[in-house]
């Protein structure tokens, strides 16, 4: 398959009301399917809302066929691939911010957020466990990788996914809007767009970002989902601050053309990276890294 029609579901959520949010998911999945989309990408914590605090344990689910929330989603994934955001409780009762990739009735992959911002207005480390792996995985559209919000403020997760074979980065977030200046978008929107475009350029890959909208108390979420192609060109963009279902057609042959021109992946010196990284970590002089 050479064209992937991708739908960015830029939604508002009800805080802690998973049933109501599920209904909205099923509705949008239906609308995306009517438009022949092959994949629909929901934002971070799309089934629960973002600022969960003490609601966290009561909105957690496991992505299995027995789960009342995942059963209808897995059924819907017979027709269209789906990425949803949720709180995952593992069998030792640790709670993770998670994305699940559902396809043809199966859970292909679950990503646990590895970077939990706990500074400024963020307090995720207080309520959630840290994810501990970054893996690309195969889908019917090729090999992809998923990252959640703060995961892609750090350059290493997208870099690892690239080396692990991902040609499409699926990024999700619930990014609180901030930095109102004399510009037609918030600073938070500008930062994320610069970063994602840079990833598309540097990794000669597709980079799709789905961000939520709406308000939680005084926080606003700015939406503005984007898809960049392997040349770093913007091929789709959702509106700011409004619910929307935005479609993008990803011509997967663009990977061939871009990488023929710009063989950054071919030339990447991973063994050099590994040697230098080992040296830096082993020096352990307390200045170069945190050692985590």
């Amino acid at each position: 398959m050479t064209i992937l029609k991708l739908a960015l579901a830029q939604i508002n959520t009800k805080l802690g009301d998973v049933d109501a949010n599920l209904e909205k998911h099923l509705d949008l999945i239906g609308r995306a399917r009517e438009q022949d989309a092959g994949l629909i990408l929901f934002p971070e914590l799309s089934l629960t809302g973002y600022t969960l605090q003490d609601l966290t344990p009561s909105v957690a689910h496991s992505p299995t066929k027995d789960d009342p929330i995942f059963r209808p989603l897995l059924e819907a994934s017979q027709e269209i691939d789906i990425v949803v955001g949720f709180v995952n409780e593992d069998n030792r009762h640790r709670f993770y911010i998670a994305d699940a990739y559902l396809s043809e009735g199966e859970v292909l992959h679950v990503h646990h957020k590895v970077y939990l911002p706990t500074y400024g207005l963020f307090d995720e480390g207080r309520f959630f466990a840290l994810g501990d792996s970054i893996r690309a995985f195969d889908t019917r559209f090729g090999r992809v990788g998923m990252l959640i919000c703060e995961d892609f403020w750090h350059i290493s997760p997208p870099y690892l996914l690239w080396l692990d074979g991902a040609d499409i980065l699926l990024l999700t977030s619930a990014s609180p809007g901030r930095g109102l200046k004399d510009d037609d978008r918030l600073e938070s929107a500008r930062w994320v767009e610069h970063t994602n475009r840079a990833y598309a350029n540097l990794f000669t890959s597709f980079v799709a970002h789905s961000n939520r909208v709406g308000y939680e108390d005084g926080l606003n979420f700015w939406g503005g989902g984007t898809v960049y192609d392997p040349n770093g060109e913007l091929i789709a963009k959702g509106p700011y601050h409004e619910e929307a279902l935005t479609f993008a057609e990803l011509d997967l042959n663009q990977l061939h053309r871009t990488r023929a021109r710009l063989p950054l992946l071919r030339d990447e010196r991973t063994a050099l990276v590994q040697r230098e990284l080992r040296r830096i970590l082993e020096a352990n002089d307390g200045t170069a890294h945190t050692g985590r």
């Binding site: 200046k181 709406g214 700011y240 601050h241």
Partner: peptide
């Protein structure tokens, strides 16, 4: 004082959205 200047269309959109939502 221009360092403090804001995009008034964007301010309007966020603040009216906030009132309606809340």
């Amino acid at each position: 004082i221009s360092d403090l200047s804001i995009n008034t269309d964007l301010a309007r959109k966020i603040l009216t959205g906030f009132i309606k939502s809340e």
